[in-house]
Computed example of a mutant assay.
Amino acid sequence: MVIRAVIPSKLRTATEQLKFSPAIVSGNHVFLTGSTGGDMNGKMPSDAEAQFRNAFDKIELILREEGLTFQSVVEMTTYHIGLRSHFDLFDKIRQECFDAPYPAWTAVEVAGLRREGAVIEIRIIASTEANP
């Protein structure tokens, strides 16, 4: 099976520095690397809402690179620092992105994330066949 990387131009510098692919297409699925809440310039805001929106913005950028939307997402795993303190806000923003049928979702409380100051990391699997 052939696999290929998905690298939007706005993420190329980070991709080259960190030696990773923002997403990999394998078969009929696109596997996205976990997205934290840093902005497109790599700055991590201290505000949780800004982090949530930034993470979903990066996910949308990667999906669009493949001609996909949030409706293509079949599975989402979210890793949270302070899950209970910000769950309602995160869930509100999540619902702005997704419509029924909603993706399968697991939310996990973690002790830490790679990026200093990050409170969220979102991992996505999308289907190339699920786009309306």
Rank of each mutant, 00 (worst) to 15 (best):
L89W: 04
N131L: 14
P8Q: 05
V110A: 06
K10Y: 10
A126I: 05
C97P: 09
G117R: 07
F98M: 08
A111P: 02
S72T: 02
N28I: 11
E129D: 12
G82L: 08
A100Q: 15
R115V: 12
D57N: 13
R123N: 14
H29D: 13
I93E: 01
F52Q: 09
S46T: 15
S85Y: 05
T36Q: 04
T36S: 04
S127W: 02
S46K: 15
T15C: 13
K92V: 11
D91V: 01
S21V: 00
A100I: 13
S26P: 10
H86P: 06
A14R: 14
R53T: 00
S21C: 06
A5C: 12
S85E: 15
L68C: 00
K43P: 00
I124L: 06
V25D: 11
V2S: 14
C97T: 08
T33R: 15
S35L: 07
Q95E: 11
S72R: 02
H80Y: 05
D91H: 07
G67Y: 01
Q71M: 03
A100T: 15
A48V: 04
T69V: 06
H86K: 12
A55S: 01
H86N: 13
P101T: 10
Q71S: 08
S21K: 08
A118I: 01
L18N: 12
D88V: 02
S46V: 12
I81D: 10
P8L: 02
R64K: 05
P103H: 02
G112A: 03
S72P: 07
I59T: 03
G38T: 09
T78H: 02
C97A: 14
R64V: 00
L89D: 13
V110C: 07
G37Q: 12
E129G: 11
I24T: 12
L113A: 08
G82D: 11
R115S: 12
K92T: 14
P45K: 04
R94G: 02
T78P: 03
H80K: 09
G34Y: 04
V73L: 03
A55M: 04
E66I: 00
F31T: 04
Q17E: 13
R12E: 13
V110Y: 08
G42C: 06
E75A: 07
M1K: 15
R115E: 12
Q95P: 03
K43W: 10
I7C: 07
F70N: 01
P45R: 06
R12C: 09
N131M: 07
K58R: 10
I120D: 05
V73G: 00
V6A: 13
V2F: 09
P8K: 13
T77V: 12
E121C: 13
R64C: 00
A130K: 12
K43Y: 10
F56V: 02
A111M: 05
K19L: 11
M40P: 06
L89Q: 11
V74H: 01
Q71D: 06
